[in-house]
């Protein structure tokens, strides 16, 4: 059994840890609010973009001259996985669940005989994937800025688009964690190249006016500017969602850690008190039996 002094040290150390986790939780809570606002503010743009593109795409679909970003290269051989994770750890299962989803996807593609290339955005994703998929990682991007600007994301998107134009890959899938609520973040995979639109048939029938749209300059030109922009917008909103999810996950993880530390302190204090009492009793018995023996 540990001595009284050991127990005392132990309690002090757990208390120090609890203070740290508590502080981290509060910092995460403050950051979460800002990140959540940013993620929610970016949603209207992404949604409207989707609607407009959906309308446009309905008109172009199936045509031979449809842009490659929409129709694909006609092959499905090389897959690019864009894995967005956080820059920092200590946020529960956040990074590992995204990495796990990406890893499963990659393994499946490899088993099908496809070529897999991985670009990681965020340091933790690279750390998680480098051990078993290290040879597939073609690029790692770190986002160390405090506030993520659209311009920065555009650079990344341009980089990816250049790779696509050089025909380095056929299909691009984005992995990130969608922010549902503080306690629930859903790791999500979404294909961004070739673009997919979930236009329902009902919608198309309802907005039968799509065919009557006027385009300026032309339908094709608009699609050509819109599709690359859509890529940056999708990556941007994924990264904002990720930022909010990260803080949410960290807050929950740190809340749990604080609570665990509290329980541990209670347990240790109890056994510390018991032991101290046992020692006092022992000393008393010694004194009494010593006196009786006289």
């Amino acid at each position: 059994m540990a001595s009284l002094k050991d127990l005392k040290n132990r309690i002090a150390s757990v208390k120090a840890t609890q203070k740290i986790t508590k502080a981290m939780q509060m910092v995460a809570a403050a950051k979460l609010r800002r990140a959540q606002e940013a993620a929610e503010a970016s949603r209207p743009y992404a949604e409207r973009m989707g609607t407009v593109l959906g309308n446009l795409a309905a008109g172009v679909q199936g045509r031979d001259d449809a842009p490659k970003l929409m129709a694909g290269t006609g092959k499905e051989q090389v897959h690019l996985l864009l894995v967005c994770t956080a820059e920092r750890g200590l946020c529960g299962g956040f990074n590992s669940s995204i990495a796990k989803l990406a890893r499963e996807h990659a393994k499946k593609l490899i088993a099908e005989g496809k070529t897999v290339q991985i670009v990681t955005i965020g340091r933790k994703g690279f750390d998680a994937l480098k051990r078993d998929l290290g040879q597939h990682i073609v690029e790692k991007i770190e986002l160390t800025e405090k506030k993520i600007e659209f311009g920065r994301i555009k650079q990344i998107a341009d980089q990816i688009l250049t790779m696509f134009e050089e025909e380095k890959f056929d299909v691009c899938t984005l992995f990130y964690s969608r922010f549902q609520s503080v306690i629930s973040q859903v790791p999500t995979a979404s294909q961004i190249i070739p673009a997919t639109f979930d236009v329902e048939d009902d919608d198309k029938a309802a907005s039968g006016a799509t065919a009557l749209y006027d385009y300026e300059p032309g339908e094709q030109e608009i699609l050509e500017t819109l599709l690359p922009r859509n890529i940056s917008v999708q990556i941007y909103s994924a990264i904002l969602e990720n930022a909010a999810s990260e803080q949410g996950a960290r807050m929950t993880a740190m809340d749990n850690a604080t609570r665990n530390a509290g329980e541990m302190i209670d347990k240790l204090t109890l056994s510390y008190n018991r032991q101290r009492q046992a020692q006092i009793t022992k000393e008393l018995i010694e004194i009494i039996s010593g006196a009786e023996a006289l």
Partner: peptide, 19 residues
Amino acid sequence: PGTEGEFGVGAGHSPFLST
């Protein structure tokens, strides 16, 4: 401000998409 010139929109304008 459209790419090919500024344009005004009033209620009931025909569907139109411009950069």
